[in-house]
Design a protein around this nucleic acid. Structure first.
Lengths: 232, 232
DNA sequence: TAAAAAAAGTGCGATTTCGCAATAATTTTA
DNA sequence: TAAAATTATTGCGAAATCGCACTTTTTTTA
């Protein structure tokens, strides 16, 4: 158990809401979890499905997105290892309002709803932590709404790049974003057309704010990127 | 106590998360709450403030909004009696990310953070209900992000009107929206300029979808309004 | 490894929405 | 109740962004 990625990322990891559980509870969760592997592009769940478990991302990257007007996709969130997927619908006792797709080879582990609630009902502190996490995400969602609606294209794209850095951090060179999204995904994250994402990335490269090599994005001038994001 | 609005709206009301509390707990909350009256336009809290209590709206209407690029306002949520204000920041243990202003004469009651947490820590079911409420609002926020970014002006305005109906319902005539917002607030709710809100409202009136009389908005064709909202 | 498919990049006219000024109507204040 | 302030309305020109077609490059598949 102690070498298992689920244990390490979800139960032991200091940032996980489960890190303060008793060893007994951790063992219970460990004994009840099940894992799945998804290839790039595979669907983990779709809008409208009923959640039956808490899905934990243990390895890889997953996009959570909604389909809007004319099927146009808006990425709501990107998950990283140690994070949960689809927990909102589970705790709201609703069907999924968004879909989840692996954007690279990923491993997810599931904790059955009943097992989870059993532990939550006997542990207020876990509930409060999950509540805190949910409330924090609600704040980010509201902030995001304002950014996506009010900032201009350059500001939105800059913000998305900063968001990618925050979520997936840099490679060892300390400047290459450790995420290799398609131009389309970058566009769907930033509320713009693919053409405009491409165009604006090129402009940033021309301004020496970033450099591009296929899907590899290197940040050359972080403070300028921040300024572009702030000015909208 | 049993005739008090705080008791009726917040503790007794079946829709409130506190409705299932024991009588003892209800009494404790009742004995610890304090009330305030705000005139139209008065600030209840501002972005950056530290939350110290759970604020409950007992009477009136309150807008929760964020200031974006160039001070431009985006209304994030509208509260109605029986609802909470600023609970997100409280449970996220953050400062407020939005401001709250009474849009009509309002009465709000506060439950001190410590009193509230004391009850929550001894009552998992309350925590789970608050979690459910927060997760539900997160879903609405994500849905709203997509609407506000992808729908065109007509769709956004139609959605806002439907949202006002859902939140504040109709007057006794079953067609006048029981909310009298300024054109500016309607615009800030719908992510558009005041001019465009006015223009588009006029267009709707010309199409006999609504009728206008100052701030009074009467819905003449609800299904058409729904269609406009859905088509974007 | 050649063909097919998918993704990336570019150009430009069409639309949407904004910005702002000017005016009118309504509400508040002295 | 008259003056001042706020809110509502209207009209364009300007700017931002989209839509879409077309080309090039990269990746996948047979």
């Amino acid at each position: 158990m102690y070498n298992d990625k689920f244990y390490l990322e979800i139960l032991k990891n200091k940032n996980s809401v489960f890190s303060d559980l008793s060893d007994t509870d951790k063992e219970t969760l460990f004994n009840h979890h099940s894992c799945n592997r998804y290839k790039k592009g595979e669907i983990i769940f779709k809008e409208g499905n009923r959640p039956t478990a808490l899905i934990c991302l243990v390895e890889g990257k997953v996009k959570i997105f909604k389909e809007g007007v004319g099927g146009r996709e808006q990425i709501v969130r990107l998950a990283r290892p140690g994070g949960f997927i689809g927990y909102r619908a589970l705790f709201a006792k609703e069907n999924y309002l968004a879909s989840a797709i692996a954007i690279e080879e990923s491993i997810v582990c599931s904790i059955d709803k009943e097992d989870l609630y059993h532990i939550m009902e006997n542990n207020v502190q876990i509930c409060l932590k999950i509540l805190q996490m949910t409330a924090t995400e609600l704040g980010m969602s509201n902030t995001r709404t304002v950014s996506l609606t009010q900032k201009h294209i350059r500001g939105r794209l800059a913000e998305s790049l900063l968001f990618l850095i925050e979520t997936y951090s840099f490679e060892d060179d300390n400047s290459t974003i450790k995420a290799y999204l398609s131009r389309e995904d970058i566009a769907n994250l930033s509320n713009m057309t693919t053409s405009n994402a491409i165009r604006t990335l090129s402009t940033f490269a021309g301004e020496k704010v970033i450099s591009l090599d296929g899907r590899r994005i290197k940040i050359l001038n972080l403070s300028k990127l921040r300024k572009i994001s702030e000015l909208g």
